[in-house]
């Protein structure tokens, strides 16, 4: 009975396949377009429209971006910021979310309210800048990781995942004499792989893409972030300002258009994210947690 599909099932499978492919095309194409544009000859790409393969294959815009030492310095800084920052953030989120997920913890509601409040109200740029100045964090690597050490939204998502883990597990461990740290590391975390993958993804992407901390808190070009570097490039050559300032000698010297650079910049910053997501995807498989929970 299981093997044989009814006509209705076949139709619904087919329908699903069509929808899935349509979704893929609609979501994949723009990204694909960006990548292909970045590998296209600026002049040929200008004639416009959408295209599936590069128009007049060319590596010029990639070469232009990758030629300078600064882009590698910035790339290294961004990697360091993302790795260190994500690590710190995930640890702090776990430590905060776990106690808040336990219904018997006293003061929990107040603490949650207090934390959530900061999601809605913030002091603004200038007071934060002054704080970092007083903490001597300006122009240091720590300005990238500490001021955004915990994201309230991510923490609450994690807390929610922890809450979904049946109490029976930790209760039995408690009876066996395990303390809270042991329960967290031996029972809760191993059961939360998907949740942790979510955290790594969210924090990682956030860290990787954020640039305002780089713009505001750091002047030293040895500490420059990739996103700041790329943003400055786009800002100085593209947009109303760049062209309005008559485009300068860049365009005089080379035929790479702002559009090409923009596409290359996007491709450059998305590809690392994509790699991380693909490697995390195996954790989003149904039923990973439940096997051990039975009982």
């Amino acid at each position: 009975m299981r093997k044989k599909k009814t006509p209705g099932q076949i139709v619904s499978e087919l329908l699903k396949l069509i929808i899935a492919l349509l979704l893929t095309i609609v979501c994949l194409y723009p990204f694909w377009h960006v990548i292909m544009y970045s590998f296209s000859d600026s002049k040929e790409a200008m004639s416009g429209g959408l295209f599936v393969l590069p128009k007049g294959f060319s590596l010029e815009s990639w070469k232009m971006l990758l030629k300078t030492k600064q882009v590698f310095i910035a790339f290294g800084n961004s990697i360091a910021k993302t790795v260190v920052g994500t690590l710190i953030s995930v640890v702090i989120s776990i430590l905060t979310a776990y106690p808040l997920s336990l219904p018997y913890v006293k003061g929990r509601k107040f603490l949650q309210g207090m934390i959530f409040f900061t999601m809605l109200f913030s002091g603004g740029t200038i007071p934060t800048y002054i704080l970092l100045k007083d903490l001597h964090m300006l122009d240091t690597f720590w300005a990238y990781v500490i001021p955004s050490a915990m994201n309230v939204y991510n923490m609450f998502i994690l807390r929610n995942f922890f809450q979904a883990i049946p109490d029976s597990l930790s209760e039995s461990a408690m009876l066996d004499g395990a303390n809270h740290v042991q329960i967290l590391t031996r029972i809760v975390l191993p059961l939360s792989k998907a949740a942790l993958a979510t955290q790594v993804m969210f924090y990682g992407v956030n860290r990787w893409n954020s640039y305002m901390d780089g713009v505001l808190y750091v002047n030293d070009s040895k500490l420059q972030l990739l996103q700041v570097y790329l943003r400055q490039i786009i800002n100085s050559i593209g947009g109303k300002q760049g062209i309005g300032a008559s485009a300068g000698d860049l365009s005089g010297a080379s035929a790479i258009t702002e559009e090409s650079i923009k596409m290359t910049v996007i491709a450059m910053s998305v590809i690392p994210v994509l790699i991380v997501y693909l490697s995390l995807q195996k954790y989003f498989v149904k039923g990973t947690m439940v096997g051990s929970v039975k009982g």
Binding site: T68, K69, Q70, S221, Y229, Q232, S236, A245, G248
Partner: peptide, 10 residues
């Protein structure tokens, strides 16, 4: 306001 992006060795 910058006109272009310098590297660390300016």
């Amino acid at each position: 306001v910058q006109s272009a992006v310098p590297g660390a060795d300016d």
